[in-house]
Simulated scan of single mutants.
Amino acid sequence: MPLYEYHCKSCDQTFELRQKFSDAPASECPACGGSVEKLISQSGFSLKGGGWYGDGYGGSKAAPAAPACPSGGNCAGCPSAS
């Protein structure tokens, strides 16, 4: 069930209520009985990463190839490895 945030106009208290989508919005403060207004608050999740579209349908970009080692792939023989 979603969590909704309300603000009381009388006692200036902010509180949260867990309600069903089908429930009517709260109309009075549980502390003082004053009228309340529903607040718009920031969501608790964010979408990160490529997601299904970027991973499956957006086309994939090949990773750049690693630079070839002049010694045939064995970096122990490279002058910069010593």
Rank of each mutant, 00 (worst) to 15 (best):
G59Q: 06
G34E: 05
S71A: 15
D55V: 05
Q13K: 13
K48V: 14
N74S: 12
G58R: 04
P2I: 01
F21Q: 10
C75T: 11
Y57H: 11
S82G: 14
G56L: 12
G51M: 00
K48N: 10
T14V: 15
R18M: 04
G56N: 14
A76S: 10
G34C: 11
H7F: 14
P64L: 04
G77M: 06
G56S: 08
N74K: 10
Y57M: 07
W52V: 09
G50W: 02
H7L: 12
S82E: 11
K38T: 05
W52F: 14
G77R: 09
S60K: 15
R18G: 01
P70E: 07
Q19H: 05
S27V: 14
K61C: 01
S22R: 12
S41F: 09
C32S: 07
A81E: 13
G34D: 04
C8G: 02
G77Q: 12
C78W: 11
C69N: 14
A81K: 09
C69S: 15
P30C: 08
A65F: 01
G51L: 00
S80F: 13
S27T: 15
G54Q: 10
C69K: 10
S46C: 08
H7C: 02
P30S: 12
W52P: 07
A26V: 07
G49Q: 03
C32W: 04
F21Y: 08
S41P: 01
P25W: 05
C11S: 02
K20P: 01
P79Q: 09
D12H: 05
L3F: 00
K48S: 12
E28S: 15
A68G: 02
C32E: 03
A24V: 10
C75S: 10
S60G: 13
L17A: 15
